[in-house]
Amino acid sequence: MSRRDLGLLVALSAIWGSSFLFIKVGVEELEPAVVVCGRLLVGALVLLPVALARGGLSGLRAMLVPIAVLGALNNALPYWLLSFAETRIDSGLAAVIQAAAPIFTVLLAIRIDPSQRVTGLRLAGVGLGFVGVALLVGLQEGAELLGAVAVVGTALCYAVSVLYAGRAIRSFSPLDVSIGQLSVGALLTLPAALVQWPAETPSAKVVGAVLVLGVLGTGVAYLLYFALIVRAGASRAILVTYLVPAFALVYGWLILGEAVTPSALAGLALILGGTALATGGRLRRR
C-alpha cells in the first residue's frame, strides 16, 4: 500500500469514526429519525453532482428494487437504530459493538452458501467475536442494554445488506447505487422526521453536527471509499473495519468526555481479533 493509499485509509477511518460523535451530538436535541433523514438527504446531495459529472444516473431505473432494499437495510433502518442507541449509550461503545458486523456476515453467508461453513480458526474467530459482543452487551442495564441491543441490530442490518448487495448489484455503478439507496433511505425516514420535527430551532452545534454527518460522514466518505477500492483494492479498503472503532473511542474520550473503560477495550480486542480470524481472506475478497 502506497503512502497516498494509506493516507486515504486513515482519512476514511477518521471520518467514519467521527460519525458516531456527530450522531451523539445530533440526538441531544433532535429525534433519531430527524438526524437520519437529514444525514441521508445531505449525503445524497453531495454525491449527486459527482454522478452527473460522470454521465448521469442512467442505470437507476434498472435497479429500483435493489436500491429500495438497500435503502432500507443499509441506510434507513441501521442508521435509525444506531442513532436511537446513542441516546442511551456512549458513541465509542456503539462503534465497538457495530464492529461485529463482519462476523454476522460470515454466519449469514453459511445459510446462503453452505460451502462457506466455518471450521478451525474461523470458528474460533466467530466464537471470540461473540464473546466480545456478549461482554459489552451483558454489562449494560436498563436503557443502556436496549441501546446496546439496537447496535447489534445495526450490525445485523449491515451484514444482510452486504450479502444482498453482493448478489443484486454487481453490475451497477457503486456511485449510482449509493445515491439511489441514500435517496430511498431519506424518503423512508421523511414521514417520521416530519412528525418528530422539533418545535424549536435546534442549536447551531446540533445543526452543524447533522450537516457534517451528511457531507463528511456520508457523502465524502463514500467517495473516499470508492477511491480507495479503485486505488488499493477491496482487500485493503476493508481494513477500515478495524480502524473506525479506535477512532470513535478516541473522539468520544477527547471531545465528549466519555470514559474508555477496560471492558470496552477488552470487547474491542475480542471483536476485532475474532473478525480477523473469522473472515480471513474471504472478507478481503468480498
Rank of each mutant, 00 (worst) to 15 (best):
S58H: 11
L156R: 06
L190T: 00
V230K: 15
A72E: 11
P245F: 08
S13A: 15
A143R: 13
Y158V: 08
A246C: 06
L12R: 00
G252Q: 01
G233Q: 10
L249C: 06
A186Q: 02
V35M: 13
S19K: 02
L128Y: 01
A109C: 08
V69N: 07
R231L: 14
G147D: 04
A72C: 12
R4A: 15
P102M: 03
A44V: 05
V244H: 01
V210C: 02
W253E: 08
L60H: 01
L57R: 09
V35N: 04
I97W: 00
G281A: 15
C157P: 03
R39Y: 05
P202T: 10
P78H: 10
V152W: 05
Q181Y: 08
A278D: 04
V215A: 13
A76C: 08
A150I: 03
G142K: 04
L48H: 02
V34S: 02
L211T: 12
D113L: 12
G180W: 01
G55Q: 14
S18M: 12
G71I: 01
G185I: 01
L256G: 09
A259R: 15
L107T: 12
G166A: 13
R88E: 09
V34L: 10
S263D: 05
Y242R: 13
L254Y: 06
F84H: 06
V65C: 01
G267Q: 04
A227N: 13
G214F: 08
V240T: 14
L139P: 01
G166H: 14
L216A: 10
L277E: 07
